[in-house]
Design a protein around this nucleic acid. Structure first.
Lengths: 333, 333
DNA sequence: CTGAAAGCGCTAACAA
DNA sequence: TTGTTAGCGCTTTCAG
C-alpha cells in the first residue's frame, strides 16, 4: 500500500505539501496540487484512516449501538438518525451489543472509536455508559432514563402510552382487560405496564393475575400467551399487548381458535410497526414518534459536539392509532 | 485521557513493560503486572483503539455493508454473519452505502477500516469493490456476480427461484401469470424475471406486457401495481410478485377490491420474510437460504483471512414454501 | 525479565 | 507557497 510519503517522493514535493494538497488546503499552488494528485493516482494511493484518526483524535463518525444488528429494528428511528448524520457530514456506523462485556459495542465505547454514540441497547450496563461518556464523547440514551454530565436522554413516554391504550379500552366499555407483557426486565415493558395499572386503578378496576401473561416481546410469545389464555376457559373482553409483535401473534392465536377480533375480543398493540396496518384486522395500536426521536437524538449529539449546551432529558409522547382490532365491549357492565 | 505512558510512570516501570503487562504477555512478573494493572485502574486508563490499529494494521473487525441501515433487513442473514464473527473473535460493524461516492461505506472500504467486508449493497459500484479488495482485505459479495482475485461470490440462484415460482403456478393450471417486478436496475429482479420467462416459454406461454408491472420492491409499489391491474379490467389468474413486500401490498389491494385470494387470483411472493406466514391468506413464496448464505459468507471471509484458499463463487438454491395464497386455477384451459 | 528506541501513516505548527 | 519536524499512543524489536 502506497503511503503519503511515496506520493510526496514521486511528486517531488515535501511530505506536508502532499498532505496539504491531498486534503485540499488552499495554500498549495494548483500546479503543485495537480502534480501530487497525479502521483497519488499513479500509485493508487489511499489515505490510511487510522493514522488520520490517531492524529486528529476525531473520527467524524457517530456510533449507533443496537442490541442486535439483525433487528427487529426501529427502522424509522434509524433512518432519521442516518439522515441527520449525513446532513451534518458525519458517518454513522452501527454495532451490536451482543456478546456481553466484550461486545463490539462496549469495545467501541471504551476505545472511543467514534465521536459520540446513540444507545438503543438495554443490555449495556449503566456504568459502562457513565464511564465512557465525556466531554469528547457525548452519548444519547434512548432506552432508559439515565443522567450524568455527558449523557442526554431522549425517551418516549411509555407510561402515558400504556395508560392511553388501556384507557381507550375502558372507555369502550371493557372492564376485563388483559395485559400481555414483554420481557420482565425491560424498562419499556415496565412503563407500559404502569400505565396500564394506572388506567385500571382510575376506573376502579382491579388487576387480575390470570390476565397478566408474558410474551417476551416476540410474536411467538404473544401467540403462546394468547393460546394459554384461550385454554384457561374465560376470555377477557380486551387485551393490551405490550407490543405489536406480540399482538400479531395473538391475532393469529385467536383466529386459529375461531375467536373473532374485535367482535369477541378487542386487541390493542403498541409501537405501530409497519406491519400493523396490514394484519387482519388492522391493528389498533400506540404509535411512538420514532422518526422524531431519532432525529432529535442525532441533532442533540451534534449540538453537544459543537459545544452548545442542551437539556439533559427529553420526553416525547405517543399517539393512538385507531384501526379495527379494538371495538366496543359487547358484555353488559 | 490517560495514556499508557502515564500508567507506566505511575507504576514505575518502562513503557514497554506496561504494554506487555496490559496485554497479558507472559514475560512480566506477576508482581509487576499487578502493579501496572493497579496503576491503570487508578488512572482509569483505556487503550486507544486507533493507535493499536495503526500499529498492528489489523482491526479484528469485519464490515457489513448495507444499502440502508434502516432495513428492510435480511435479518436472518445478518444474524448468522454476526454469530460467525463472534465465534471467530471478530467484531462486526455495519455501515450504510447511502450517500453515493462519499458514503460511509465507500470510505470504509477505501480506508480499510476493517479486515474484510461483506457486501449487500447494490449501489456500490463494481470498480470500488475491485479496487479496494486485496490480499489484506478480502470481500465477499452477495448482491451480484463479480469476480476478481480477492473477491468471493456468495449468491442465491434467483433465476431458479423465479422459475420455480412460475412453474408452480403453471402446474396448477394458471396460464395467465403476471409478474410484478422490483427495481428495474436490480440484479435480483432481473434474475427472478428471467426465471419467470423461462418457465413461461417452457410451457409455451407468451409474456403479456399488460401483465408486467413494476412495484419497486416495496409494499406500496405492490399495492399500486395491483390496483392498476385491477383497474385494467381483466385480471390474470395468478400473479408472481418479485418479493414478499410487494405481494403483501398486492394482497391488501385485492382485499380492498373484494377479490379473493386464492379463489379469484393466486398470489406468490419471493423471499419468505417472517411476515409472510402471518398475512391473510398466508403467503406462498420462495424461501432464500439466508442464514446459510450469511454464515457461508462469514466463514469464507475468515478462511481467506487465515490464508486458506477458497472457491471463487458459491451458488445456493431456493426452496418453495407452499402456503395458502396460491391455488389451482379455476378457469378452463 | 525490563528498558530504550524505532517507527506505524498522518497532520499541523513552525520555519524558510 | 513549500519544507522540516515533532509528535498522536501504541507495539515490538533489540540490548541489557
Amino acid at each position: 500500500m502506497a503511503t503519503i510519503k511515496d506520493v510526496a517522493k514521486l511528486a517531488g514535493v515535501a511530505l506536508s505539501t502532499a498532505s496539504y494538497a491531498l486534503s485540499g488546503d488552499s495554500r498549495v499552488s494548483s500546479k503543485t496540487r495537480s502534480k501530487v494528485l497525479e502521483a497519488a493516482r499513479q500509485l493508487n494511493y489511499r489515505k490510511n484512516g487510522f493514522a488520520m484518526d490517531l492524529k486528529r483524535s476525531r473520527t467524524n463518525t457517530i456510533a449507533l449501538i443496537l442490541t442486535d444488528l439483525s433487528g427487529p429494528y426501529y427502522s424509522e428511528l434509524i433512518r432519521s438518525v442516518q439522515e441527520v448524520a449525513l446532513t451534518n457530514g458525519y458517518d454513522l456506523i452501527a454495532c451490536s451489543s451482543m456478546g456481553g462485556r466484550d461486545s463490539t459495542a462496549v469495545k467501541f465505547l471504551r476505545e472511543k472509536r467514534a465521536d459520540g454514540a446513540i444507545i438503543l441497547a438495554p443490555n449495556i450496563r449503566d456504568e459502562v455508559l457513565i464511564e465512557t461518556s465525556g466531554p469528547q464523547f457525548p452519548i444519547v440514551i434512548m432506552d432508559r432514563p439515565l443522567c450524568s454530565e455527558y449523557l442526554v436522554n431522549v425517551l418516549v413516554d411509555g407510561e402515558q402510552g400504556g395508560y392511553t391504550a388501556t384507557r381507550y379500552l375502558i372507555e369502550n366499555g371493557h372492564r376485563q382487560v388483559a395485559y400481555i407483557s414483554g420481557s420482565a426486565d425491560s424498562y419499556d415493558n415496565h412503563l407500559r405496564y404502569q400505565g396500564y395499572l394506572r388506567a385500571l386503578a382510575e376506573a376502579g378496576l382491579e388487576e387480575q393475575s390470570k390476565w397478566r401473561l408474558s410474551g417476551n416481546f416476540v410474536r411467538e410469545g404473544g401467540y403462546n400467551a394468547t393460546k394459554m389464555m384461550i385454554m384457561q376457559g374465560t376470555l377477557p373482553s380486551a387485551v393490551f399487548y405490550g407490543n405489536d409483535e406480540m399482538a400479531i401473534g395473538g391475532l393469529k392465536a385467536f383466529e386459529e381458535s375461531g375467536i373473532s377480533v374485535p367482535n369477541d375480543v378487542s386487541v390493542i398493540g403498541y409501537d405501530d410497526i409497519q406491519l400493523a396496518e396490514y394484519v387482519n384486522p388492522p391493528l389498533t395500536t400506540i404509535r411512538q414518534p420514532k422518526s422524531e426521536a431519532g432525529s432529535l437524538a442525532a441533532h442533540l449529539l451534534f449540538q453537544i459536539l459543537s459545544g452548545e449546551s442542551v437539556k439533559q432529558s427529553y420526553m416525547l409522547t405517543t399517539e393512538m392509532m385507531e384501526r379495527a382490532s379494538a371495538g366496543k365491549s359487547k358484555v353488559e357492565n
